[in-house]
Design a binder for these strands. Structure first.
Lengths: 221, 221
DNA sequence: CTGACATTAGTTGTATGCAAAAACGAGTGT
DNA sequence: ACACTCGTTTTTGCATACAACTAATGTCAG
């Protein structure tokens, strides 16, 4: 089997629409595409070296996931929320994350613990290096590991979806290297409470983590 | 103005893709398209009198919402869940609904109370008449009223989304008139606890209601 | 100078055509 | 008789072309 040396991540010739969708999602949750910014189909098509058809497909799916909003015949925009809406979204996310933490603490197994700790190690590594982009990815991986630890892919999916929607707003609070280090430290406390295998403690710890995170995000928006 | 007689429901010339998407969603949650059934793009195009392009767009969006699943190059299928997956979906729904009940009980205002009571009255009416289809609609309206009572449209949206995904599986447990009456009675107890404005009581009551509902659904699938 | 209106450029929504991949089936060899 | 291979057919994925609508710009009347 003369397979090329991809390290575990098999990608069986990703379709163009998928590729564009993931690329846009990455840029949006990293905050590189500002909320309210317009996405022109033709420009995206030329930029990704494809035609408008797969671009439209990607935009459609991102809209269905709530990352974009599409007017009647007015094009697609990165979803922009005012403070009231942001607060509501964060409240919903708060609930989901707390539920995930509670379930995860009840079902934690060795593999899940290992994945969470690995992700956290990557967070520390990126934070100490001051690599903002790497930290954002590691941070997402950390929370994704907690979601997976619930053993419930559907819970994990909604949690991840909210995380993507709020990405641009959360990303703005990670400006300096100290912000990254503070976040990593907050993770350490959270991990301890989740690993305590007491679901109430885990849930409360996650609520605290989220509340802190949201307060910062609301200040920055 | 030679407009056709639309009764209040303004529809500013719905785009073909939207029209197809909504029609398919309707048919799927009503169970007319069985889980696992394949959706052929060309057939749908001819059926809706459109080309494949808007059909593809609709399928894409339904896939993003989890109503369909799309293989690599194998077309779109109505999402089918085995008992394990069903149990996980129900668990997630369980959490969301409990959170909704808790928040709703904290923010309940007179309008929301009125809407919940009206929906419940419709449930009783349909149950006593043994009208299964009307009861299903009223049941959805009842839960939707609770979602709206949270004052958080994002929580409401995920809750509704799960309800649509599980629709075909929950519907099967409402076979006889007695099933409808039992469900309506269960609602009465639930309402009392939500109106108590004690969030813990409300949350527990919703959990009980959902657990009961899920047990029945799992038996029927 | 301001407001309304027509025109025009630009963008979105839809249709059609084409190429590639997968399902299907026939035929052949063991 | 069974399995495997090769060719056909169906269907998806993408590109391009065109139509419909929006928004902006410029013009003209008040």
């Amino acid at each position: 089997m003369p397979d090329d040396g991809d390290t575990g991540a098999e990608r069986p010739r990703l379709s163009a629409a998928m590729r564009i969708e993931q690329a846009l999602m990455e840029e949006i949750s990293a905050g590189e595409l500002a909320p309210g910014e317009r996405l022109d189909e033709a420009r995206l098509a030329t930029r990704f070296g494809a035609s408008r058809t797969p671009v439209r497909e990607a935009l459609s799916r991102l809209t269905a996931q709530g990352v974009l909003v599409q007017g009647e015949r007015r094009g697609a925009f990165v979803a922009a929320y005012n403070r009231e809406e942001l607060s509501q979204i964060f409240e919903a996310m708060h609930e989901i994350e707390a539920a995930c933490a509670r379930i995860a603490s009840q079902r934690l197994n060795l593999l899940a613990r290992s994945e969470i700790e690995n992700a956290q190690a990557a967070c520390w590594h990126a934070a100490e290096a001051g690599d903002r982009r790497a930290f954002l990815r590691a941070n997402e991986a950390f929370h994704a590991a907690i979601y997976r630890a619930t053993g419930n892919p559907y819970m994990a999916e909604i949690a991840a979806e909210f995380r993507r929607r709020t990405g641009p707003f959360r990303a703005r609070k990670f400006a300096t290297r100290d912000d990254l280090l503070a976040s990593a430290q907050s993770h350490d406390a959270l991990i301890a409470d989740i690993f305590s295998e007491d679901s109430t403690t885990a849930s409360k710890a996650m609520r605290a983590h989220m509340t802190e995170s949201f307060m910062q995000a609301l200040r920055a928006n």
